[in-house]
Amino acid sequence: MSSRSLVIFDLDGTLIDSRLDLALSINLVRSSLGLPELPEPVVTGYLGDGIRNLVKRCFQDVECNLDDVVKKYSDAYREHLLDNTTLYPNVKSTLDELATAYNLCVVTNKPEPAAIKILKGLDIFDDFDAVIGGGRCQHLKPHPEPILKAIQETNSKQEGSWIVGDHRTDLKAAENTGLKSVFCKFGFGIMDTCIPDYSIESFEELTKILLNK
């Protein structure tokens, strides 16, 4: 890997549409505890801040041991994370184009083993110079730590690097590290009060922004 600038991608809602499998796994655990299922949009609205926050929000209607439920959810998701999850259109071809000019990395708050399994299952793991998932660093996005870890691990330049994501955590992480940001409007996250440098309606629009095509 040369000392080039880096494009850092979020995973869920940016590279992949994982909503159905995330909701399925949450509801399998809820059913096992005798709880009614949550609609997929409700589960989706709780995403973006790591597994413990997701579980805490999805089980706020019952008293439970958070660690136990996190483990049950992790086990369920491990079994179902590729049941319905797909790449967004034109992800693979766009990554190939971007790789001609940038190093590429995934930084996600999803636990790293699950992220790697998905990337391998969808045949894009080898497109990235590194994958930084939840559990690798002490802090999750929007803290600068996983972003700076990605820059270091890929031997990239911080100058001219980008963060691409669909959630406020991605945009805030860009602010916290001085990187430019692209917000994926096709994803399922929210901007809140953050203001991205660019917004895109489809993944392939990245080539216009990052490669001036």
Rank of each mutant, 00 (worst) to 15 (best):
H80V: 07
Y88R: 12
A150M: 08
L210S: 02
L95F: 08
L95G: 02
I163N: 02
E37M: 13
K149F: 09
D67R: 12
D10M: 04
P113M: 05
D192M: 14
F9R: 00
D126M: 11
K180Y: 08
E112L: 06
S18V: 01
E79S: 12
F9A: 03
L104S: 01
F188S: 05
D17H: 09
L47F: 09
L15E: 02
Y88L: 11
K185C: 12
G189Y: 01
L104I: 05
L54T: 03
L54E: 02
K213E: 09
F183S: 02
N103G: 15
L95T: 01
L210C: 00
F203M: 06
S32N: 15
R19I: 09
S18Q: 05
V91R: 00
K157D: 12
V62N: 11
K208D: 14
I209Y: 01
Y102H: 06
R136Q: 07
I124M: 05
R19H: 08
H139V: 06
T14Q: 01
P142K: 10
I51M: 07
R78L: 09
F188G: 04
V69P: 04
G13D: 01
G187D: 11
D126K: 14
K120R: 14
F125H: 14
I16H: 02
T86P: 01
T94W: 04
L22H: 04
I124C: 00
K120G: 08
A173N: 04
T193F: 15
P36V: 12
D170A: 06
A99R: 15
F128V: 03
P41I: 03
S32H: 14
K117M: 10
E145S: 09
L148T: 12
Q158S: 13
E97P: 02
L179W: 01
T177M: 13
P39I: 09
N65S: 11
N212E: 10
D12C: 04
S181A: 13
L171H: 06
C105L: 05
I118K: 05
Q152M: 08
C58I: 08
I118D: 00
S18M: 06
A101E: 15
L179P: 03
G178D: 07
I26Y: 06
F186E: 13
I163W: 04
V131I: 14
E153D: 13
S161W: 07
L6R: 01
V29I: 14
Y46C: 13
A115G: 01
R52W: 11
G50D: 05
D61C: 09
L95I: 06
P144H: 10
I118Q: 01
H80C: 14
L140S: 09
T100L: 13
T44F: 01
P142H: 13
G189R: 04
E79V: 10
C58R: 03
P39Y: 10
T100G: 13
R78V: 05
I26M: 10
S25V: 07
N84L: 06
Y198R: 14
D83E: 15
Y102V: 00
V55P: 00
K149L: 08
D166V: 02
G13M: 02
R168I: 14
E40K: 07
I163T: 03
I118R: 02
Y102G: 02
